[in-house]
Simulated scan of single mutants.
Amino acid sequence: MHRTYSMRQTRAPTASQIQNPPPPPSTTKSGRLFGRGGFGHALRAKTAGAYGPDLAKKLSQLVKMEKNVMRSLETVAKERMEVAQQLSIWGEACDEDVSDVTDKLGVLIYEIGELEDQYVDRYDQYRVTVKSIRNIEASVQPSRDRKQKITDQIAQLKYKEPNSPKIVVLEQELVRAEAESLVAEAQLSNITREKIKAAYTYQFDALREHCEKVAIIAGYGKHLLELIDDTPVTPGETRAAYDGYEASKAIIQDCEGALTNWVTQNAAVNSKLSVRARTLSTRRRNNIKARVEGGHDLSGQDAPLNDRDSWVPAGQHHNEYDNSEDEEEDEEDGIAGSDNGLDGEHRGRTHEALAA
């Protein structure tokens, strides 16, 4: 009986992983109270943006929605691996050519599931980076609130006690609060631009690699299908003996080599701008460069503030706001272990490492 030549049995790092080391496992793969069901999705969707500072509510909602996306991607990856196993099991009872090809197709489909699982880890890089913007927004909220509070106090005193000496004191405090708020807002503006570019670079790079590799697998899958003899036979006629075992093995080996050696520089799909889009984009970049070279030195504008009561640094506010949300998410998704991936499990048939 033939055996499955499962790709990447030894789990050697691919060229892409050497060039761009994979991130740690996604934060959504552990701590799951409600399993794979949609209850956690619905709960996050309803509570997203309901808590926390007003400035951070919209981005907080986006972060939680992305968590739902990642949960769905995890489910797709696991179920695709299960489908691959079942395809291989079903094919055992078929004719030799169908049995061999379905077994190898199971290998390819299982590989797609593992690629999807890896994509989730890289997708989490994007989500965590977006969360850092949300934390900065949350840290800016106190400075806005303080400035608004002082403004309201001044207006109230001018209405009730126009000659009150407190008005002068509050106006001085308002000047300081406005200056501190300007620093906080500038930090928010700078960090938002930096992090949004980094976040979506993570997402698009991961998506590009995933789609290119899936396309590679699809191409080799079609080569496998050519090994099946679909010529109609008359009743009682016997098909010729199947002689494609070595060919199917070679196709799997070629596919493994293509996946292992893939790097971004060799991507088959390239996005080419039209002349108009390229000209306008270049003009925009040149304008930015000219402003930077001829602008003011803003290197000191992000210095930490000494007045802790007026504005809380992002790192400290993270402990107050972000951890509370993480605890909330842990309560939603609590129990890990029963819903782990299929790593380490054998597929429907015996695996054998590819020959060198």
Results as ranks from 00 to 15, higher is better:
Gln61Thr: 11
Gln61Gly: 11
Leu62Cys: 10
Leu62Asn: 09
Val63Gln: 07
Val63Lys: 05
Val63His: 11
Lys64Ser: 10
Lys64Leu: 12
Lys64Pro: 00
Lys64Trp: 09
Glu66His: 04
Glu66Ser: 03
Glu66Arg: 06
Glu66Tyr: 08
Lys67Asn: 02
Lys67Ser: 01
Asn68Ala: 10
Asn68Phe: 02
Asn68Thr: 06
Val69Cys: 01
Val69Gly: 01
Val69Trp: 01
Arg71Cys: 01
Arg71Lys: 03
Ser72Thr: 01
Ser72Lys: 03
Leu73Lys: 03
Leu73Ile: 00
Glu74Arg: 12
Glu74Trp: 00
Glu74Pro: 01
Glu74Thr: 05
Glu74Leu: 04
Thr75Tyr: 14
Val76Glu: 10
Val76Tyr: 05
Ala77Gln: 03
Ala77Met: 02
Lys78Leu: 10
Lys78Val: 08
Lys78Thr: 06
Glu79Ile: 07
Glu79Phe: 06
Glu79Asp: 12
Arg80Asn: 02
Arg80Tyr: 10
Met81Pro: 00
Met81Ile: 06
Met81Ala: 08
Met81Thr: 06
Val83Arg: 12
Val83Phe: 09
Val83Ile: 07
Val83Gln: 09
Val83Glu: 05
Val83Lys: 12
Val83Ser: 08
Ala84Phe: 07
Ala84Thr: 04
Ala84Gln: 06
Ala84Trp: 05
Gln85Cys: 08
Gln85Tyr: 10
Gln85Pro: 00
Gln85Glu: 13
Gln85Ile: 04
Gln86His: 10
Gln86Met: 09
Gln86Tyr: 10
Leu87Cys: 05
Leu87Gln: 11
Leu87Ile: 12
Ser88Thr: 15
Ile89Phe: 12
Ile89Ala: 13
Ile89His: 12
Ile89Val: 14
Trp90Asn: 10
Gly91Phe: 07
Glu92Gln: 13
Glu92Asn: 10
Glu92Ile: 04
Ala93Lys: 15
Ala93Pro: 03
Ala93Cys: 11
Cys94Leu: 09
Cys94Met: 12
Asp95Cys: 13
Glu96Thr: 13
Asp97Cys: 11
Asp97Lys: 15
Val98His: 15
Val98Asn: 13
Ser99Pro: 02
Asp100Trp: 10
Asp100Pro: 00
Asp100Leu: 11
Val101Pro: 12
Val101Glu: 09
Thr102Trp: 14
Asp103Leu: 11
Asp103Pro: 07
Leu105Phe: 13
Leu105Glu: 11
Gly106Leu: 15
Gly106His: 15
Val107Asp: 15
Val107Trp: 08
Val107Tyr: 09
Ile109Asn: 13
Tyr110Asp: 15
Tyr110Trp: 14
Tyr110Leu: 08
Tyr110Arg: 13
Glu111Leu: 10
Glu111Cys: 11
Glu111Ala: 13
Ile112Gly: 02
Ile112Pro: 05
Gly113Arg: 04
Gly113Asp: 05
Glu114Gln: 13
Glu114Asn: 12
Leu115Lys: 08
Leu115Cys: 01
Glu116Val: 03
Glu116Ser: 05
Glu116Leu: 12
Glu116Ala: 08
Asp117Leu: 03
Asp117Ala: 11
Asp117Pro: 00
Asp117Arg: 13
Gln118Ile: 01
Gln118Trp: 01
Val120Asn: 03
Val120Gln: 04
Val120His: 04
Val120Lys: 05
Val120Ser: 02
Val120Met: 02
Arg122His: 09
Arg122Thr: 05
Arg122Lys: 07
Arg122Met: 06
Tyr123Asn: 02
Tyr123Arg: 02
Tyr123Lys: 01
Tyr123Leu: 04
Asp124Met: 00
Gln125Ala: 04
Tyr126His: 06
Tyr126Val: 00
